[in-house]
Write a protein that binds this DNA or RNA. Structure first.
Lengths: 188, 188
DNA sequence: TTAGTCATGTAAGTGGTTACATGATTAG
DNA sequence: CTAATCATGTAACCACTTACATGACTAA
């Protein structure tokens, strides 16, 4: 049972999901491909943490809909109070930024402008996801009702938006600095 | 040549460094252990991207001080304009937050308070690192002189501080929400 | 005297990605 | 007609962590 396995159990607290759905929903929180998720689900099924019902579909491939067992819920509850690992962040761009004095100013500008587009897309996506949660959830969250399904999703989305906006502001600040001293603008 | 290898080349643009120093300095940007870094340095030395001078020390173990070769610089310059990979973020805590409705309110509070301490430590550490850069660097950055050694370090530190403060604010906001509805305070 | 720092390396294991494999349906 | 989505799985590979190994010096 690794962290991703517990993460899958966490997602299943919202209700039964297929492996494919789990794979999609876990992406914003924990990057993982289907090739990693399917074997873990099979393993957890063997160990009794989850169970599945095969669902036949017309027009689409059949699927397995997984749900938590009592054992799975117990495992989740044991995991939560355990010491939480430090966050792991790896961003290739930051390594490029470290040696920014070594590269063409035009390339530097491009690097930041690409990232600004990426963050803007993310922010829009997250806002759409917030809207999808509905006003009923918003009211529950604002009242601090953490037992409400959607409380976790809402505060996670808020965090993702805050992070993306902070990064976007940083990009704008750096682009502003770069324009102060347009070393690379010969020929523009 | 993987991303970490280019990252090591990026660090070496600041001047010669030992493997041990590289390992320490790359931590805030890219988590990697010495056991991963030493073999990569050996490989890059074989391929001619870096070279080293053995330095004998009294009172300390001998070390190898690596520096960039012209080939290494060329490789760096080729890498920068290549498409930049998406950032990878994996934080166990967010998975726990997702199923926060399923856990004890006291445990939830503890989770956030632990994180708030972690972010506060980080922010203090980053501020100390900023101070270490000196006013000369600050002036160069404020003038947008990106070719200045320290420009990259300064803007990366600013980003790290912004991120940590954004996360800390989020934790405070959630803790505030949790206190609105003290479900778990029976017996306090 | 125990733990921590400096300093380098290898070996074994886990976690995660890419590629291979299948196949029907739908949208451009 | 090509690409994307849904849906599951395996195999090979790469990236990263943990443990093993050594050894001298220093601070609590």
């Amino acid at each position: 049972m690794n962290t991703l396995s517990y993460g899958l159990l966490a997602l299943l607290t919202r209700g039964p999901r297929s492996g494919y759905e789990l794979m999609q929903h876990i992406q914003p929180i924990w990057q993982a491909k289907h090739s990693q998720i399917y074997p873990l689900l099979a393993l957890m099924e063997k160990r009794g943490f989850v169970q599945y019902v095969p669902v036949a579909q017309k027009d689409k491939p059949d699927k397995k809909v997984y749900s938590l067992t009592d054992e799975g819920i117990a495992a989740l509850r044991e995991w939560v109070p355990e010491p939480t690992g430090d966050p792991v962040k790896r961003d290739e761009m930051l390594l490029k930024v470290y040696c920014i004095g070594f590269i063409e100013p035009a390339q530097a500008r491009q690097l930041f402008e690409e990232r600004m587009r990426m963050y803007q897309c993310k922010i829009e996506k997250y806002h759409r996801m917030l809207d999808d949660l509905g006003s009923e959830t918003v009211q529950a969250v604002e009242a601090g009702r953490m037992e409400h399904p959607g409380f976790g999703s809402y505060i996670l989305l808020k965090r993702a938006i805050g992070q993306a906006e902070s990064d976007l502001d940083w990009c704008r600040w750096v682009v502003g600095l770069l324009q102060l001293n347009p070393t690379g603008s010969v020929g523009n």
